[in-house]
Amino acid sequence: MSIKVGVIGAGWMVKYHAEGFRAAGAEIVAVADPAPGAADKAAAEWGIAKTFDSVEKMLAEAPELDAVSIIVPNKFHAPLALQCLKAGKHVFCEKPPGLSAAEVEEMVKLAEETGKKLMFNFNNRARPESQAMKAYVDDGTVGRINSAQAKWIRRTGIPGFGGWFTTKAMSGGGATIDLLHMIDLSLYLMGYPEPAYVLANTFDDHITDPGFKGPWGIPDREGGTTDVECAAHGFVTFKSGQVLSLQVSWAEMVKREEVSVVFQGTKAGGKVERLFGRDGLDETAIDTCELYVQENGNSVDRTITTEACEDMGRIHSAANFIHTINGTAEPLNTPDQAHKLMLIIDALYESAATGKPVAV
Rank of each mutant, 00 (worst) to 15 (best):
T288R: 04
Q264V: 15
P335C: 07
A67I: 05
Q264L: 15
P79D: 00
E103V: 06
P36H: 09
L189P: 09
V31C: 15
F235P: 09
E307M: 14
E105T: 13
E310P: 13
C309I: 09
V72A: 01
W152G: 11
E194C: 06
L244E: 05
L348F: 13
D346N: 10
N296D: 13
A24V: 05
V14D: 07
A38F: 14
K4F: 02
T354L: 08
W152N: 13
Q149A: 10
I345T: 06
E257G: 12
D287E: 01
L110E: 00
S317L: 03
D205E: 08
E94H: 11
G20I: 00
V108Y: 03
A347P: 05
E258K: 14
V198L: 01
M190W: 01
G297V: 08
P36Q: 12
W152S: 14
L65H: 05
K151F: 12
L80G: 02
A10I: 05
A67C: 11
W250V: 14
L118P: 13
D279N: 14
G162Y: 07
V55D: 00
I325Y: 07
E112L: 00
G37K: 00
A353E: 06
P63W: 03
G88K: 12
E257S: 12
A308F: 09
K15S: 01
A169K: 01
Q264M: 14
Q337R: 09
N333D: 13
I48F: 09
D204Y: 13
E283R: 04
A318G: 15
V137P: 09
T156E: 11
I158L: 07
A35R: 14
P331G: 13
D33L: 12
M13V: 12
G224L: 07
M133C: 10
A232C: 15
S299E: 10
D40Q: 14
A18H: 10
E61A: 08
T288M: 02
N123Q: 05
G223S: 10
A251Y: 03
G172T: 01
I3R: 08
Y192F: 14
C93G: 10
W250A: 15
G265F: 04
Q83E: 05
V55M: 02
R256S: 15
